[in-house]
């Protein structure tokens, strides 16, 4: 096993981990404010990708519907519009599902189940409209960008590098936001909604903004992952479980933790396959999930608050 080989596996892990991270960012944002797991994130992720696809190709459908939009936007514009509409979808989800449940003081478990229900509806609606077949963004979507780039002995798919860059950019933007007046107000809401309300902060408005940001990130992530592979109605669901593991590993509700958790999870998976399969074929790839989640369990035994999460202090 050469150093070049290990570097390649490390790059594979980081690039896949970036996908996990960008997916988990939207997840953790809602959790950090409301302490609920929003399982519609996978569906919003898929909707975002389909929106960008339709705005770029000018075509909606493939399943029970065939519509021509009469316009084809360049990727950057379709991407922006798709992400913004996904943000609005996030807001709609807050109004349709989470806000009514909060008003009724429903158990957080009900919110979780309701979000799974809505996610299933959204995914099935996508299948009805676009069919079950995979759609691919046009080859020219990324212009003259080569499919892979060579960084010394390491090959990286260009789109994976873009995903890594966007993930770090999103993290930086969220960090800057957290330092602003609005960001501070948002985190005050997360800390204690009642006190934040007494301080004159409109709690419900900030919750709406949180869902918008979460949906926006979901839409961005969906398009980027769709550009990397292909899109199908169910492709967001595969990231649901791993996204959950990532935010637990990084620290529930911790935004930098979601990014670190995603990257660590990606690297663990890549090295599990890369090291074990190199010596005994099929062992690492066969037990990849068991080994990755086993490591997650070990980490949590020693750091129950996750890699970057704060230790909970029980005040008596």
């Amino acid at each position: 096993m050469t150093a070049g080989y290990l570097l390649q596996q490390l790059a594979n892990g980081l690039s896949n981990g970036a996908v996990y991270a960008i997916f988990a960012l939207g997840y953790t944002l809602v959790f950090s404010i409301l302490d609920i797991l929003n399982f519609t994130q996978g569906a919003v992720f898929a909707v975002g990708a389909y929106l960008t696809y339709s705005l770029m190709t000018g075509h909606i459908g493939g399943g029970q519907l065939h519509l021509h939009l009469g316009l084809r936007l360049p990727l950057w514009l379709a991407f922006t519009a798709g992400a913004l509409i996904s943000g609005l979808l996030g807001v709609a989800i807050e109004f349709l599902v989470f806000r009514p449940l909060r008003r009724r003081r429903a158990d957080p478990l009900l919110a979780l189940v309701a979000s799974i229900g809505l996610a299933t509806l959204l995914v099935n609606a996508l299948q009805l409209i676009y069919g079950a077949q995979n759609h691919n963004f046009p080859f020219h979507a990324l212009g003259s960008l080569p499919p892979v780039v060579y960084l010394g002995p390491v090959i990286v798919r260009s789109i994976q590098l873009i995903i890594l860059g966007v993930t770090l950019l999103a993290l930086a933007a969220l960090w800057l936001f957290s330092r602003s007046r609005y960001g501070k107000a948002l985190f005050a809401v997360a800390e204690n909604p009642a006190v934040a309300s007494l301080l004159g902060i409109s709690v419900s408005r900030y919750i709406v903004w949180t869902f918008f940001l979460s949906g926006l990130l979901g839409g961005i992530a969906g398009t980027l992952v769709g550009l990397s592979y292909s899109i199908s109605p169910y492709f967001g669901q595969n990231y649901g479980l791993i996204g959950l593991a990532v935010i637990v590993l990084g620290g529930l509700g911790d935004i930098p933790g979601a990014v670190v958790g995603g990257l660590v999870m990606g690297v663990i998976e890549a090295l599990t396959v890369g090291v074990l399969d190199f010596y005994i074929s099929g062992v690492g790839s066969g037990y990849q999930d068991a080994i990755s989640f086993g490591i997650l369990l070990l980490v949590l035994l020693f750091r129950p608050q996750g890699l970057l999460g704060r230790k909970l202090v029980q005040r008596v």
Binding site: N12, G13, Y229, V273, G274, S281
Partner: peptide, 23 residues
């Protein structure tokens, strides 16, 4: 048979398995 790589249904990223196989 120089290498066997196992995948999962719904998997979309295969870069680790590919690197191992191509080695």
């Amino acid at each position: 048979l120089v290498d066997v790589e196992k995948t999962k249904t719904g998997q979309s990223n295969f870069t680790s398995q590919i690197t191992t196989a191509l080695a």
